[in-house]
Design a binder for these strands. Structure first.
Length: 107
DNA sequence: AGTAAGGCGGGCA
DNA sequence: GTGCCCGCCTTAC
């Protein structure tokens, strides 16, 4: 699915920015919200390339199976940030993901 | 124009 | 739980 105005990346960032504090979403959710459900991997790619780590809560994006997934500044840092927001983890897994998951309404 | 690299997901052993 | 494999999409080179 070609994107006209905004690049795929920018769309990913836009969605990522609206994940509330204390909530998480998944790479898959983002891909689906973009109408490109098969682009899960590209979503991770885009977040990895994100230039503004500080204003981009990409630490709130985790894998659909509950694992933390990657983070440019390291998974340990990702875990820290999530913990600070009240999301508990054990090992490299988020606990009770379904309670905190944020679903986007369609775009 | 080909190709490889990813912060993935799902399936199956 | 752990692996491995295959499919998928966007970017950068």
């Amino acid at each position: 699915m070609p994107h006209t105005v905004l690049s795929f990346r920018e769309n990913v960032y836009a969605l990522c920015r609206r994940i509330p504090r204390g909530r998480v979403t998944t790479y898959q959710e983002i891909a689906r919200a973009l109408g490109n459900p098969a682009a899960v991997r590209a979503v991770g790619n885009a977040l990895h390339a994100n230039p503004t780590l500080v204003f981009m809560p990409c630490h709130r994006v985790v894998r659909s199976d509950g694992h933390l997934g990657g983070y440019a500044a390291g998974a340990a840092r990702k875990k820290e940030l999530l913990t600070d927001e009240g999301i508990r983890c054990r090992g490299d897994r988020v606990l009770g993901l379904s309670q905190f998951i944020y679903h986007f309404h369609r775009v």
